[in-house]
C-alpha cells in the first residue's frame, strides 16, 4: 500500500550525489593540499609546505593575491548594494504595480547574456576606442582617450554590473513582501518619509540585502573570468593564482592549498553574514 516509500529514501540519491561529487572532492583537495610533488608524482606526505609557500613564495605574491581578492570583493559587494538598493526601492515603491514585472524583466535582461561575453562587452565599452572614451573626448571632458581596461577599476565595474542585477532581484523580492501597513503605521505615528524608511523599511529589508550580499561575495571572490578578462595581468587575484598553478605548472598541491585559503575566507564571510541576518530579524 505504501507505494514506493519515496518519503523514506527520496533524499538518498541527492545526498549520494553531493557526497560523491562534492564532499569527496573537497576531502581529496584537502589531502592534495598536504601532499608534495616528488619527481613528477604526487605523494601524500602530510606536509604544510604548500601553506608555507602561500605565505612566503614569490615574494608574497599569493598573500598579495588574497589581499587583492578580498579588497576587490568587498568593494564590489558594497558598491553593488549601493547601486541595487535604490533601484530595487524605486521598482518596488515608485513604479506602478502593473509595470513592475516588465521593468524587472528589463532590468535583469542582460543577465541572460553569457558571463564570458558580458566581460568581453565591457572590455569593448572601456577600450581606448570604445564608446565611453568617444563620449568623454567628444564632450571635451578628456583631451586624450584613456584605456580603462586591464585595471582594478574595470574588474570592479564588470562585477558591479552583474551583481547589482542579482542584488536588485533579492532586495526587490524582500521589499515587495513588506506590508504597506508597516510604513503607514510609522507615518501615522509621526515618522516622516525618511524616518519611516530608516526605522521600518530598511531594517525589514536587511535579510534580502544580506542574502544578495553573501551570494555576491561568494560568487565574486571565486570568479576567474571577470578579473582575467577585465583586470588583465597587472594585478593577480586569488582565483587567477589558482588557475596559474593548475594550467602552466600543473601544481595541484599548491593550487589546492590556495583553494583551501579561498574557502576559509568564504566561511568567515558566511559566519559574518549569518550573524548579520540574525541582527536583521531582531
Amino acid at each position: 500500500m505504501r507505494g514506493w516509500g519515496l518519503k523514506s529514501w527520496g533524499h538518498v540519491p541527492a545526498l549520494a550525489w553531493t557526497g560523491a561529487f562534492f564532499v569527496l572532492p573537497l576531502v581529496a583537495m584537502l589531502l592534495m593540499s598536504v601532499s608534495e610533488r616528488i619527481g613528477g608524482k604526487i605523494t601524500l606526505t602530510w606536509t604544510l609546505g604548500n601553506y608555507q609557500a602561500f605565505l612566503t613564495k614569490a615574494e608574497g605574491t599569493f598573500v598579495g593575491a588574497l589581499v587583492n581578492s578580498v579588497e576587490v570583493t568587498v568593494l564590489t559587494t558594497i558598491l553593488s548594494v549601493l547601486v541595487a538598493y535604490p533601484l530595487a526601492y524605486i521598482l518596488a515603491y515608485r513604479v506602478p504595480v502593473r509595470w513592475q514585472r516588465l521593468v524587472l524583466v528589463l532590468t535583469i535582461l542582460p543577465f541572460w547574456t553569457s558571463y564570458v561575453i558580458r566581460s568581453y562587452s565591457w572590455l569593448l565599452v572601456l577600450s581606448e576606442n570604445g564608446v565611453i572614451n568617444q563620449f568623454l573626448v567628444g564632450a571635451g571632458l578628456l583631451a586624450e582617450p584613456v584605456g580603462m581596461g586591464n585595471s582594478r577599476f574595470a574588474t570592479v565595474l564588470g562585477f558591479v554590473h552583474f551583481f547589482a542585477m542579482l542584488l536588485t532581484l533579492t532586495i526587490y523580492a524582500n521589499l515587495v513582501q513588506i506590508k504597506d501597513s508597516y510604513r503607514k503605521a510609522a507615518a501615522d505615528l509621526g515618522a516622516n518619509a525618511f524616518q519611516a524608511f530608516w526605522h521600518v523599511t530598511l531594517p525589514l529589508s536587511l535579510p534580502g540585502v544580506a542574502v544578495g550580499a553573501f551570494l555576491t561575495f561568494v560568487l565574486a571572490i571565486g570568479d576567474y573570468i571577470t578579473p582575467q578578462i577585465l583586470g588583465g595581468s597587472k594585478e593577480l587575484l586569488l582565483p587567477q593564482a589558482v588557475m596559474l598553478q593548475l594550467g602552466r605548472q600543473a601544481d595541484f598541491p599548491l593550487a589546492s592549498a590556495l583553494s583551501m585559503v579561498l574557502m576559509l575566507v568564504v566561511t568567515v564571510a558566511f559566519l559574518l553574514s549569518a550573524r548579520h541576518l540574525k541582527m536583521g530579524r531582531v
Binding site: F22, P25, L26, A28, M29, V218, M263
Partner: peptide
Amino acid sequence: APITVSYLIIGMGLQIT
C-alpha cells in the same frame, strides 16, 4: 553546502578526484 563554495573549487576538486 555547495552554494557556499566557489565553482572554481568545486571544479578543481572534481578534477583531482
